[in-house]
C-alpha cells in the first residue's frame, strides 16, 4: 500500500518512513506543504498522513486537496495541536482518524490496519493461533467452535494488538499505552499488564495451553504466528 507522509520534522518523518517500510508499506515523504500538494495532485495513495502544523501550509487545506484528488485515500491527521476544535474540524472534513502527538508507531499502524479493515474489507478476519481462532471483527476468541466467554474486553484488546504486531516483542509500556492511552492518569509505571497476561493464560489454559503467547524475559510479550 502507498503511503504519503507529510511531516515537516524530518527526523520524525524518517522514523515513520522506516517503520512503515519495514511493515511492507511503500512510503513517500513530503517535508512541506507545497511538495505535498504537488504529490497529492500527481500520485494516488492509499494512506495520507498529514501533520497539521506545517510552516508553509494550512494542514486542513491540504486535507481538502487530498480528499479532492485522492478520494479513495484514508487520511490520518497527526498533530501536536490536540485541540478539540481541530479534531472536530478534521473529522468533519473527512479525515479517517486523528492521532495526537506524541504517538506510538505501533498505535499508528494499528489505526491504519483498523481503517483498512473498515474501508477495504479484510478477507481474513479470522486468524488461527494454535488451536484457537481469533475473530477480529466480532472480537471473539474461540476454541474448536466454542467461544471463550471469560475473556474480557481489555484482554481481547491485548491479544488483538499483539496479533496485529505478531512476532514482535511488545513492551509493557507499549501495551499499557494501547489499552489505557485514553485515560489521563497519575501512574507512570504499569505492571498491570503482567496481571492481564496471567489472566489471559489462565482462561485459555482451560481449553489448551496458549503456547503462541510468549514472555520475552526482561522485555515484554509477543505472539508467535507463522501465517
Amino acid at each position: 500500500m502507498n503511503v504519503l507522509i507529510i511531516e515537516d520534522e524530518r527526523s520524525l518523518a524518517r522514523e515513520v518512513d522506516i517503520f512503515l517500510t519495514n511493515n511492507n508499506y511503500v512510503c513517500e515523504v513530503a517535508y512541506n506543504g507545497r511538495t505535498a500538494s504537488e504529490k497529492i495532485s500527481v500520485n494516488l495513495y492509499d494512506f495520507i498522513l498529514i501533520d497539521l502544523g506545517l510552516p508553509d501550509y494550512e494542514g486542513l487545506d491540504l486535507l481538502k486537496e487530498a480528499k479532492a484528488s485522492n478520494p479513495e485515500a484514508a487520511c490520518i491527521i497527526l498533530t501536536a495541536r490536540a485541540e478539540v476544535n481541530d479534531r472536530i474540524t478534521g473529522l468533519d472534513l473527512g479525515a479517517d482518524d486523528y492521532v495526537p502527538k506524541p504517538f506510538s508507531l505501533l498505535e499508528l499502524q494499528s489505526r491504519m490496519q483498523a481503517i483498512t479493515r473498515r474501508k477495504f474489507g479484510l478477507k481474513h478476519n479470522t486468524v488461527a493461533l494454535g488451536d484457537f481462532q481469533i475473530n477480529l471483527t466480532e472480537r471473539i476468541i474461540s476454541y474448536e467452535g466454542n467461544v471463550v466467554t471469560t475473556i474480557t474486553k481489555k484482554e481481547f484488546d491485548l491479544i488483538a494488538y499483539m496479533l496485529l504486531h505478531k512476532n514482535r516483542t511488545l513492551t509493557r509500556t507499549q501495551l499499557s499505552e494501547h489499552i489505557w492511552g485514553s485515560v489521563v492518569n497519575d501512574d507512570y509505571d504499569s505492571n498491570y499488564i503482567d496481571a492481564h497476561i496471567k489472566n489471559i493464560r489462565k482462561k485459555l489454559n482451560a481449553f489448551a495451553p496458549p503456547n503462541w503467547l510468549e514472555t520475552v524475559r526482561g522485555l515484554g510479550y509477543k505472539i508467535v504466528a507463522n501465517n
Binding site: 520534522e9 515513520v16 501536536a80 502527538k101
Partner: peptide, 9 residues
C-alpha cells in the same frame, strides 16, 4: 510533544 514524538518513534 514533537520532540517526545521523535524520541518515542
Amino acid at each position: 510533544m514533537t520532540p517526545i514524538s521523535i524520541l518515542q518513534t
